[in-house]
Structures are given as C-alpha cells and as structure tokens.
Design a protein around this nucleic acid. Structure first.
Lengths: 234, 234
DNA sequence: GTCTATATCTGGATAGAC
DNA sequence: GTCTATCCAGATATAGAC
C-alpha cells in the first residue's frame, strides 16, 4: 500500500513479492521436495524459474529440453528433479505462481479510494509497470496458457477475468458518479486490457520506436479518457 | 475490389484466396514435391495445413508430433514427407502462406478512395472480418512467430508493420484533411492493431459474452473515433 | 544435496513394398 | 502416390556414487 506510482518505487514492491513467492513455493511443496534447507531450496527455485522463463520465452516451453534448463540454471539434471516431479509439473508451478503474484500485486494497488478517473489511470499504470518489471512472467503466462491441463487453464481464465473486473468496477463506479459515459463497462474493460497486453506482447515494437512505459501509459490513458469522460465543454 | 463489407460477402473473397493459395504453393514447390498431379497435391496440401493449424493451435506446433499430423490429416507419415522436407519447413511454409494471404487481402480492401474516417472504419472492419474467417491462420501466425528462423521472423515483423502502416497512413491523411486530431499516427495505429488483435487472441472471451464481430467492430470504431475525431460541437 | 552415467522412450525421418 | 516398418537422435527420468 505504499504510494508507489513511479516505476522505481514499484520495483521494490515487486522484488519483495518475488522473494516471498519462492519461499511460499518451497513451503507448499515441502513434503515432496527432497532438499530440506530453505535457503538452498529458495535460491535454486529462483534459478530454475528464471532459466525456465527465459528459455520458454525464447523458443517455447515444449521446445526447451531439460538439458537446456540444467545448463542455463547451473544445476544438473538430477538436481532439477529434486524440485519438481517432471516437466509438466514445472509448467504448472510456473503458471500458478505467475497468476498468484500478478493478481496479488494488482489487487494491492487498487485498494485506495480516489475518484473514478484517477483510480482508473492508477490501475492502468500499476498494470503497465508490473508487466514491465515482470515481463518474462507476463509473456510466459500468456504464451503458454493453452498448453496447461484443464484445471490450470480454468484458473488462468478466472484470473484474467478477475483483473478485467477490477477495471470494469472502476468504470461502473464512474458511471454511477456521473463522470463516465454509459458504455458497457465489461467491454470497455476488455479493450483496456487489450491495450495493456500489447505492451508486453510487442515489447520489441515499442522499444524500437523508443516509446517508454510512461509514454505508453499516457497514450492509453488519453485514449480511454477521451472515450469514457463526459465532455465538459471547456 | 468487390464491395464486400458485410462478412458474408467477404467470406467468398477469402474462400477464393485460400484455393489460390494451395495452387500457388504447389507450383512454387513443384520441383521438390514428388506428387505430380496438381489436383491431388492441392487437396492434400489443404488437408495438411488445416490439420497442422488445428493441432498447432490446440497444443502448440512443437508439441504436435508428425504422427498426430498424419492421423488428423488422414495421411501416413510417409505421405506427409512428400509434401515438405521436414517439420521446420512445414512451419515456414505455413507462416509464409498466412502472411501472404493476409497482406494481400487487406491491401485489396483499402484501395478505394473515401474520406479518412470512413476509410479507417472500413480498414478496421476488413481486418476484423478477415481475422474472424481465417481465425486459425491469424492465431497461429501470432503464437508461433517466435519459433521461426531469423529470416522468416524478419518477414513476419515486416508484414506486421506493413499492416500497421495502412492504418497510420489513413490517420495521417485524416490529419492533413483536418478531420483528425494531431496525435502520433504510428502509435494510434499500434493501438488500433492491439484492439484488432484481441479479437482473435481472446476469441473465447467474446464468444462467452455473446459479442459478435459486428458489435466488436462498433466498439473499436467508437473508441477510435472518440479519440481521433475533432469534436464538432453539435 | 548434487553430480554423472544410464535406462527407457518418444518422435522425426527414411527405405522399400505395394 | 501412399503405406508400413524401421532407424536413430535426442528427450525425459532415475539410480547410485560422492
């Protein structure tokens, strides 16, 4: 709940959440993971996830071999298998973790009370910053979603909709307050989400045009406000 | 150049283009393809592509085995290999074909001269309809782009930008004609493209909400026009 | 806890019959 | 033109040394 609305302060929030993530992950799978020392396990889990995200995003998770993963993470194949039961399980763990960490941070960031337009632009900023800092996680979560088992895919959809609802609720509130036009709020939210998503799916494009995250935030906010705000004749 | 601005008429344009596609593909690889009879080759190429798109979109191209592909297309593994030299080559062929057919049809559809706002909404409609009809192609082209070799990936980027330029040019023209606000036209185009893309990347979402392609077209057009049009005080 | 070596299997590719 | 049978590289996963 720190007022972290520049990307640098935000970065610390994320770093802390990431550290928590691996600790929780270890405790959650404690019974199965053969390694007993938390500090060791947490360090290796971090290495494994980092390597898996990088390789998965480069050539696709299913094209990544366990040898690749071992080489990149600095662990032997034997060691890898002490942390998860198989490649499928690893995929599930990564996806679960991304969804959890993303949902948690976003929810944290929209708790404060503000007028709808400000709240909306804050939510947009929070999502953009987060996807910028956690780019590999966002990209992976989207690109590999279809390769999950049915349950996990269901959960991915739930969280996608949950995040979208955050935006829809803000829009609805603004409409009730009389500051937003009465468009369908769920569809407006879907469009905002589409714009947010482009930022992490087409990073290369914005980089090559030297468009930074703040600039992009301004663009989305501008477009969305011109669509939603009731024009007060100036 | 038929005035095909409802989706049904559009469907015929696409069907014809698809038939052409396989014929051209055969002629292009004639020297290498062992099958000599055009009618046979064209029929089988169509089956193979259809199966590969379906399987690739279900579980990812690299997770699709040649045995899967054989079963789904109704051809034996031996037969498959008379049409392409290997799995990589097949991926390249599919991607090349999608990009070609998409670029060609879109270009065809924006030749006519109209005032910028109308031209813009037509281009949006054309892109949406096309992605609706050729959904498997669009989805595949996007999701598998990162698995291509360097040359092919370069070409994919080129075509992405080429399509975006169509939108940017229309916006620039509208600005010069004094009907559009002077925002950066390349970034506005990128945002339109993001919205168009959501339609085929998140098809499940719009289906489950019973939002049809015409409704979605209206939404995008509405949002874009509220952003671009210079407000004429009514 | 981690490594190396190895068992086992999957899946791309081909040879040769029909 | 198409199929079946087979080869073999490379992948997952495990056993057992250290």
């Amino acid at each position: 709940m720190t007022d972290a609305f520049n990307i640098h302060a935000f970065r610390n929030v994320v770093r802390a959440a990431e550290a928590d993530l691996y600790r929780e992950l270890f405790r959650q799978h404690k019974n199965r993971i053969k390694v007993k020392k938390e500090s060791v396990a947490v360090r290796n889990l971090a290495r494994i996830f980092e390597a898996a995200l990088a390789l998965g995003n480069e050539k696709g998770f299913s094209a990544m071999s366990m040898r690749d993963l071992g080489a990149r993470s600095g662990l032997s194949m034997g060691a890898l298998y002490t942390y998860f039961t198989g490649k499928d399980a690893l995929l599930d763990m990564i996806q679960q973790s991304s969804l959890n960490i993303i949902a948690r941070i976003i929810n944290d960031q929209v708790k404060e009370n503000h007028p709808a337009p400000k709240k909306l632009s804050r939510a947009i900023l929070a999502h953009l910053y987060l996807s910028e800092i956690m780019h590999p996680w966002f990209f992976f979560a989207f690109m590999e979603a279809k390769n999950l088992n049915k349950n996990a895919r269901q959960k991915a959809i739930e969280i996608e909709l949950c995040i979208e609802n955050i935006f829809a609720d803000i829009i609805t509130a603004g409409q009730q307050a009389g500051v937003f036009r009465k468009v369908k709020s769920d569809l407006a939210a879907a469009m905002i989400k589409a714009l947010l998503q482009d930022w992490y799916l087409k990073k290369w494009k914005y980089e090559s045009r030297h468009v930074g995250v703040e600039t992009y935030a301004g663009l989305i906010t501008g477009m969305v406000e011109s669509y939603l705000l009731i024009s007060t004749e100036t």
